[in-house]
Design a protein around this nucleic acid. Sequence first.
RNA 1: GGACAGAUGGCUGAGUGGUCGAAAGCGCCCGCCUGCUAAGUGGGUAAGGGGCGAUAGCCCCUUCAUGGGUUCGAAUCCCAUUCUGUCCGCCA
Length: 431
Amino acid sequence: MGGYNGGEMLDRKLIRENAEMVRAGALRKGVDAPVDEFLKVDEEWRASVAELESYKSELNSISKSIGQLIGQGKKEEAEAAKQKTSDIKEAIKELEPKERELEAKLQDIELKFPNLPHDSVPDGKDADDNVTIREWGTRPEGEFLPHYEIAEQLGLIDFERAVKVSGSGFAVYTGAGAKLQRAIINFLADFQSEKRGYTEVWPPALVLSSSLVGTGNLPKFADDLYGTVDDLWLIPTAEVPVTNLYRDEILDAEQLPLKVCAYTPCFRREAGAAGRDTRGILRMHQFDKVELVKYVLPENSYDELEALTNDAEQVLQALGLHYRVILLCAGDMGDKGCKCYDIEVWSPGEQRYLEVSSCTNFEAYQSRRANIRFRREKGAKPEFVHILNGSGTAVPRLLVAILETYRQPDGSIMIPEALRPYFGADSIPAN
RNA sequence: GGACAGAUGGCUGAGUGGUCGAAAGCGCCCGCCUGCUAAGUGGGUAAGGGGCGAUAGCCCCUUCAUGGGUUCGAAUCCCAUUCUGUCCGCCA
C-alpha cells in the first residue's frame, strides 16, 4: 500500500507546527505560501475526520454486537440493533463527501507550497543572484569556432536530414560524430560506476504516469513531456525511472547510501522559444545523459550533495575541460529542491558557460511522493530517505566543449586522453 | 492479441459473510534454560492517518492488488481495472 497520497511537498505536521518558518522559507523562493489558508482548512479537515470517524466507530461496534447476538441465537435483539444503524449510516453518507472535499482542497493548497531552501542557500531572486563557488582549469585563449561549424566541416552531425526525419530539435550524428557520441556515453557510464562507486542500471525510457508523479513531473509539468497513446511517457531524464526503482519500499539503514547511475536518452518537449540556445545541439528534444541518483540518510544529505557534485565535476577534470560550479540562490532553484549546484562547462565557441549538470538535494520531497523510506533499526518507525540527483553528465554540451576546446589549428580534433580507449583513435582528422 | 488460473502480513501459506488485522510455519526481537554452540521453551513481531497524553503509553479510523457496489457487517459475494503465472498465436 501507500504511494502517492496527495500533492504535498512538505510534511503536514511541519507546516502545522512551524507555520512561520515555512512561510519564511517559501518567501525566500519568492513564493507567498498560503500558510493561513492551510492552517484553516487543515483544522476543518481534521475536525471533519474526527466526526466521521466517531460515527464509523459507533457503527462498527453495533455491527460487532449484532454478530455476537446472532452467534448467541438472540435473533430479535439482533434485529433491533439493526434498526439503530440507519441514522448513523445516513450521517456517514452525508459527512463523507464533505471530508473528501476538504481533503482535496487541502491538497490543492499544499501544491502551492515549495520545498524549503536550506540555510546555506543564498537569498536571491533569479540567476543574477547565484554565487560562483569555484572554477577549475583555465579558459582557453585564441580563436574558436562554434561546435555546429566544426561539426559541419568534419561531417560529424547532419542537421538538415535530422530536420527532415524528425523536425527541429534533433540531431543525426554521422561517422566519427556517431562514434564520439558512443565513446562519451561509455566513458561516462564506466567512470561513474567503476571510479565513483555507483551501481549502473539500464532502465526503460518509457514510464507510467505514476512514476512521473513520484518525481514531481506530473501533474504540474505535463507540457514538458512527450506522452503516448498509452499511459506511457518518454522520460525527460533517467531521474524518473531510477528514483522510482524503490517506490513503496522500506530500505534497511545499512543499504544507505544507495548510489545508482544510469545512461538513458532524454526526451523534452521544451515548448521554448527559438533563440541562441537552439543553435546546434545546445538544446534538443532528445539528448543523452548519464544520471546519478543517491538515496541517503537525512542527516548526511548535505555532505552527500557535495560528494555528488564532485562526482560530476571529476568527469570534466578527467576530460580537461574548464568549468565552474554555481550555487543557485533561493529564487532560482525551482520549487522542488532544497539546495542545488549547477556545473557549467566553458564553451570557447560560444564564449560562455553551458550547464552540463544540476546537482540537487531534494531532501524528502521525492521520497514522500514516491513513498521511499528506511528503518534505522528493526522495529523502528520508517522514515523518509533523502534523495539527491545530478547529471554525471549531459552528453551534447560535453561534446560541444570537447569539439571547441580540442580543435587544432589544422582543423582536426584532438581526442582527450581519457576518451581515447573508447573512441579508438587519438584524433578526428581534418577534412 | 486469445484461453485459463491467481493476487492475503518480511517470506511461505490457510481462510468463501460476523470478536479475522487475519491460523500455521519460517524469519526477526525480548526473556528463560544449557558450560559455549545447536536444540528446547515463554512472549512479542504490518502500515498510514487522527485524537489524548506529549521522551513512554493509550484510544479511534482506514488498509487482505486497485476502484466501485451489495450488506447492520466483506479478505470472503457482485462489477470494472491493473498486475503475475501457464498454454496458444505473433514478433526484434
